[in-house]
Amino acid sequence: MNFPTILGLWIAATLTIAIFSFLYKDNPLYKFAEHLYVGVSAAYWVIFAAKFTMEQQLINEFSANWHLYLDTGSRAAFWEAWILVIPTILGFMMLTRWFGPKVGWISRWPIAFTIGLGTGLAITGSIQGVQLPQVQATFVPFWGPDLWVVVGNILLFTGVISSIIYFYFSKPHKGFLGGVSRVGIIFIMVSFGAAFGYTVMSRVSLLIGRLYFLVYEWIGGTIEFIKAL
């Protein structure tokens, strides 16, 4: 293990402990680590956007297609280059929000474009990809050779129908409707319980990951480094 690696490990370990110190109480060390994290993340995103979006997707793409057009006279390359001007202009229009309400309205045009595109894609994706297949998946047989599959199918059907009825607000939940919606609440509560259980598992996993790092990589790595000196 070389010196830069061990230095990196110590920085990571110090920041981990600084973040964990919040569990005792809020303190300057925690605040420093928190601000550093936000700053580094923001800087990473800026560099990433500049390097892999602006440079790679716009400047290099335009330049490559433009040179191809100049070398070969390809009309496709010509249009591939100039089509990039449209998103560039839309991007600059978005920035007009910085210059106050007098010109800020211009930014609404690219926002409208983005929302229109996003909504169109979301609606088709939701209907085609989620709603129809999920409705279709509730058409399950209530008979068959495997008893547990049948029980599961009945539970699935009951759960779906009763949960949907719980969210049906056009009639008061009394009588039969009230009874079914109470069954719906039970199913919803069970799903909340499952989600809570998984969330606990998830958070404990994060703690395991960090403690594993502290014990085996930081302390273990430091011991290894000292031994090698």
Binding site: G129, P133, Q134, Q136, A137, L156, S191, A194, A195, Y198, T199, V200, M201, S202, S205
Partner: peptide, 16 residues
């Protein structure tokens, strides 16, 4: 992650 997993079980059942 564990937080996301429960939301995906319906897609397993539907074969998606």
């Amino acid at each position: 992650t564990g937080v996301v997993a429960p939301d995906l079980y319906p897609y397993l059942q539907s074969g998606q």
